[in-house]
Amino acid sequence: MPRAALLARQVYCHRIRKYVGAYYAVLGRVDAIVFTGGVGEHDAEVRAAALAGLDRLGITVDPARNESRSAGEPAVSPPGAEVTVLVIPTDEEWEIAHQAMTLLRESSACS
């Protein structure tokens, strides 16, 4: 991986860790962390790196579960973890189409 790409990846993961820590501090507790979308769904290395070092907060990723991502099992945290880490697939195209149809219906109802 080129140096610039590696640096960008490290900064990306650092920012995720920073935001998780900040939200934890503001909320006082975290029940779950959800990864979704392209990178969140398909990049086990980013998921692991983004949450690395947060063990003291009860946030851990099970390496085997994170890598295997068996169908139907969204949890990548260890069983019984204090904070559940999930990978939830999304369908962005469907959501965009749904919102567009809703807007079209609303605008035609107002006419």
Rank of each mutant, 00 (worst) to 15 (best):
Y12E: 02
V20T: 08
I96L: 11
Y23W: 07
T60V: 07
D31R: 13
A50L: 14
R29T: 13
S108I: 02
A97L: 06
M1G: 06
V30N: 00
V87I: 06
V34R: 02
E41C: 13
T84Q: 00
E67S: 14
R105V: 00
S107M: 10
G40C: 04
S107P: 04
P74V: 06
C13G: 07
V20M: 13
T90S: 15
A32M: 01
G40K: 03
A75K: 08
R56A: 10
P74S: 14
Q99M: 04
P63L: 15
E95N: 15
E95A: 12
R9G: 09
P89K: 04
T90G: 12
L7Q: 12
L27S: 15
T60E: 02
K18V: 03
R56K: 14
E45H: 11
A32Q: 02
S108A: 09
L86K: 12
V87K: 01
P74C: 07
Q10W: 11
V87N: 01
M101S: 15
S107C: 11
L86H: 10
G80P: 11
V46W: 02
G72H: 10
V85K: 00
T36D: 02
V20G: 10
E93V: 06
I88Y: 06
T60I: 01
S107K: 14
T60Q: 03
